[in-house]
Simulated assay, not measured.
Amino acid sequence: MSNPLIRACDHYVVLEPGQEERFLDKDETLFWLESWLGKLQELPKDLKSQGSVESAAQRLLDTACDLEIKPGFTLQWFAVRLDPHL
Results as ranks from 00 to 15, higher is better:
2 S>K: 15
2 S>T: 15
2 S>V: 13
3 N>W: 09
5 L>G: 11
5 L>C: 13
6 I>S: 00
6 I>V: 14
6 I>K: 10
6 I>F: 11
7 R>H: 15
9 C>M: 10
9 C>V: 08
9 C>S: 07
11 H>E: 15
11 H>S: 07
11 H>F: 11
12 Y>F: 12
13 V>H: 01
13 V>A: 08
15 L>A: 09
16 E>Y: 09
16 E>P: 03
16 E>L: 05
18 G>N: 04
20 E>N: 13
21 E>K: 06
22 R>S: 10
23 F>E: 15
24 L>R: 04
24 L>N: 07
25 D>Y: 02
26 K>D: 10
28 E>K: 12
28 E>N: 13
29 T>N: 00
29 T>I: 10
30 L>Q: 09
32 W>C: 02
32 W>M: 03
32 W>Y: 02
33 L>Q: 01
34 E>I: 02
34 E>A: 04
34 E>D: 06
35 S>Q: 13
36 W>H: 11
36 W>Y: 14
38 G>A: 11
40 L>R: 04
41 Q>P: 15
42 E>D: 08
42 E>C: 11
42 E>S: 11
43 L>T: 05
43 L>W: 08
44 P>E: 06
44 P>I: 05
44 P>A: 02
44 P>D: 08
46 D>E: 04
46 D>K: 09
46 D>Q: 03
48 K>Y: 05
48 K>V: 04
49 S>D: 01
49 S>Y: 02
50 Q>I: 04
50 Q>V: 07
53 V>L: 08
54 E>C: 01
55 S>L: 07
56 A>S: 03
56 A>T: 00
59 R>E: 05
59 R>Q: 10
60 L>Q: 05
61 L>M: 10
61 L>F: 02
61 L>S: 01
62 D>K: 06
63 T>N: 11
63 T>I: 07
63 T>L: 06
64 A>Y: 02
64 A>I: 13
65 C>V: 04
65 C>P: 04
65 C>H: 14
66 D>K: 07
66 D>Q: 09
66 D>F: 02
67 L>E: 08
68 E>Q: 12
72 G>P: 00
73 F>Y: 14
73 F>D: 09
77 W>N: 00
77 W>S: 01
77 W>Y: 08
78 F>L: 12
78 F>G: 12
78 F>E: 10
79 A>M: 09
80 V>W: 10
80 V>C: 12
81 R>W: 14
81 R>T: 14
83 D>I: 11
83 D>E: 14
84 P>A: 11
85 H>M: 08
85 H>D: 15
86 L>T: 14
86 L>R: 15
86 L>Q: 15
